[in-house]
Design a protein around this nucleic acid. Sequence first.
DNA 1: CGTGAGGTTGACTTCGGTCAACGTTTGTGG
DNA 2: CCACAAACGTTGACCGAAGTCAACCTCACG
Lengths: 242, 242
Amino acid sequence: MTNNPYNLNKHNSNCSQCGLQNMCFPKGLFRTDIDLLESLVTHHPCLSKGEYLFKAGDAFVSLFAIKAGLVKVYSNVEGKEVIHGFYLPGDVLGVDAIVSQKYKFNARALDMTSVCGIKLSEMDKIYQLIPHLNNHVLNIMSEEILGGRLHSELLTKKSADQRVAYFLWGMVERFKSRGYHYTEFRLSILHKEMATYLNLTPETVSRVLSNFSRKSIMTWKKKEVLIYDLNALEKLAHTSID
Amino acid sequence: MTNNPYNLNKHNSNCSQCGLQNMCFPKGLFRTDIDLLESLVTHHPCLSKGEYLFKAGDAFVSLFAIKAGLVKVYSNVEGKEVIHGFYLPGDVLGVDAIVSQKYKFNARALDMTSVCGIKLSEMDKIYQLIPHLNNHVLNIMSEEILGGRLHSELLTKKSADQRVAYFLWGMVERFKSRGYHYTEFRLSILHKEMATYLNLTPETVSRVLSNFSRKSIMTWKKKEVLIYDLNALEKLAHTSID
DNA sequence: CGTGAGGTTGACTTCGGTCAACGTTTGTGG
DNA sequence: CCACAAACGTTGACCGAAGTCAACCTCACG
């Protein structure tokens, strides 16, 4: 178990292996595929905080698998930011650009971030060579659709408390499933950004977090999240509003 | 130009042709593919208002292309309905169930509806036989992701007036692009359902529509939508909230 | 007809937004 | 290493868009 998903030094620098880890779900690739996939994987210098992985309108180059760090995907509507998701180590982003061959959203590192690219510029060929890869792409797209709908449910049917609880609980689950510490972790998301994602204001988020802290459910100070009462958090996240 | 998309009698009853129309975008299928695709397309009896096309949890059988009518896709969160989209003639639904092989949402006819099924139970085989079909599926999934994000933008950054205007303007655009009448059309969506989709209450929707009617922008009485001032509608839909 | 679902309208409430003032952290350059 | 500025976060007072509640209207359909 890695102590900190953001610690680049500790991360295995074998990029293709990283790519494979990410792409092996749900069915593993066959050994014979690996060499081919290897040739698709590109290495990238680390992105520092604030750097763009891609911008809306850029030509599609490749998918990106996050090795370490954190990326937000967002659009700008009438000057205001709409955040569609946060991508953690192990996540793959960019699938929505495959068809149009243009990224439609902005992707920006929120922290020192390391990615590998997966060149899918010649999709048709690749499908025939690695039929399984197609399943992985479909799988990621499915997750993206489901995630979006879950987000809609969150935005439309949950109170401010529930949204924050749900968001944090979701983060915990994601860290847990990836084998990271999940009751104490670094989260380089500004409260402001979580607010945007949840369609709340920073003020409201601040009040909710103060509230959670007062109830000894969790704290989030200076990018360090400490979960004291995961049960309470889950209950809050899932209970009916009335 | 068909007068009314809901008029089943006027619709070409050749189901496979319908399926092809839907699947031909963005790249046409080759003639040789058509026979194979034909064998994948299944015919279904018409659904009457309120009938389910599928329910959340059902095993995935096929995608559905809407020939005529209207289908809503929704989930239930703590007893409350969350509507994720309305599917019109020419739309294909069910892509999000391909990977999991289970439908995750409910799909219900809002009016007399006719669909054809596209059996994709043996995806892998099909991909190899019709590589193009894969592009169509990816394309539909992409649209689904984009649509979801657009919906999020709507929910988070628009006022009640703007949401309603945007929704109606969107419907107009969809009818227009499909070659139907788009300044006068039948829309079998309850105000209550539009409200749910837009995360508003029926009362608010009623007030907004009264307002639009008073301003001679449009009316929507008894499932008949009449657009008087499409420009005003588009302007409302797109202008900044401040 | 009559009944029930859907739609409308008005009065009132509320949750979260806005505004403002202040506290705290971060990061840069001397 | 410190100073300072700018960005971020917190707290309180107040506000407002949309929700809630209630009464009533309308219409489709048995």
